[in-house]
Design a protein around this nucleic acid. Structure first.
Length: 276
DNA sequence: GTCCAGGTGGTCA
DNA sequence: TGACCACATGGA
């Protein structure tokens, strides 16, 4: 299966998922729900799913193939000329539609943390507790652990995965989800504001993490998560070096009306990895 | 040694 | 509401 307009390396690095593993140059294994795929970069912005295993999954949905990124990129450059560099630099990034439980838990790990460390922690967790499935060559891949399995892990063990002070938040939120397993289905039907409110009621989930979960797992394109890199970008591009969080949020809300989630991800990637 | 990382919870005014 | 601070932990 072909995936157009994607740069796998950029998506892998882009901090929206912590679950991909690079098995060789330009080749990645991606676990998703009860299945996985192996995907390879076959041209500058083209990739091919070369193997699927475990339960069959909707990869069109996962890779957001129902949206035309070439067209969106052109519109974004028109709408936000001062971020044209960011759009160009980030070409090939797509906004993934990831699993709800996995996105919730991995983004609790992400708070005040860095991408490498988050990936390591999540990898420890999945390697020890995730169900294994195997590709044609017998290589094993660990799925994300089920809520039942997660609910039996204690605070000390989350610390051993590098969760640090977030460990009690994980235990609390996992316990709540375990006892209210219908919430993810209910979340799908909530409007954006109600979804954010519901997510932020969970321990370890504040405004930023809630927006990431809504954007990367509930297809809420109006979301614009504000992290340290976005703050740098806004302060710099709008020439407001001393702006406090409240002013930045206000600026973001009034300025980013078109495809906020996509342009946010482009700006994040550009300021994180581009020259500035 | 200090600063930083895809921030949040708790407290106090 | 908003401002402040403590919070693990590894890398620069």
């Amino acid at each position: 299966m072909e995936v157009k307009n994607i740069d796998l390396k950029k998506v892998f690095e882009s901090g929206q998922t912590f679950r991909w593993s690079e098995i060789s140059e330009g080749r990645y294994v991606i676990p998703y729900l009860e299945g996985a795929c192996k995907i390879e970069q076959t041209s500058r912005y083209g990739a091919e799913i070369i193997e699927e295993y475990g339960k069959s999954q909707d990869w069109n949905h996962y890779f957001d193939l129902y949206r035309n990124y070439e067209k969106m990129d052109e519109e974004l450059k028109q709408e936000y000329p001062i971020f044209a560099d960011a759009v160009n630099f980030s070409k090939g990034i797509r906004i993934l539609n990831q699993a709800h439980l996995e996105t919730l838990i991995t983004f609790i790990f992400s708070a005040n943390n860095n991408i490498k460390r988050i990936m390591n922690s999540v990898n420890f967790l999945c390697t020890k507790y995730g169900e294994k499935i195997y590709d044609r060559g017998g290589r094993e891949v660990h799925l994300f652990p089920s809520i039942e399995v997660l609910s039996r892990i204690d605070e000390e063990e989350y610390r051993s995965f590098g969760a640090g002070y977030r460990a009690p938040y994980l235990v609390d939120t996992i316990d709540y989800i375990y006892k209210n397993q219908s919430v993810f289905e209910e979340f799908v039907h909530l409007g954006d504001e109600d979804l954010l409110k519901a997510l932020e009621s969970l321990k370890g989930v504040g405004p930023k993490v809630a927006r990431c979960i809504a954007l990367f797992s509930y297809s809420r394109d109006a979301m614009f998560p504000i992290d340290t890199w976005i703050k740098k970008a806004i302060r710099s591009e709008f020439n407001m070096p001393d702006a406090k969080d409240g002013e930045i949020s206000k600026k973001v809300e009034e300025y980013f009306k078109k495809y906020p989630g996509v342009i946010q991800q482009y700006i994040f990637y550009y300021y994180r990895f581009g020259v500035k």
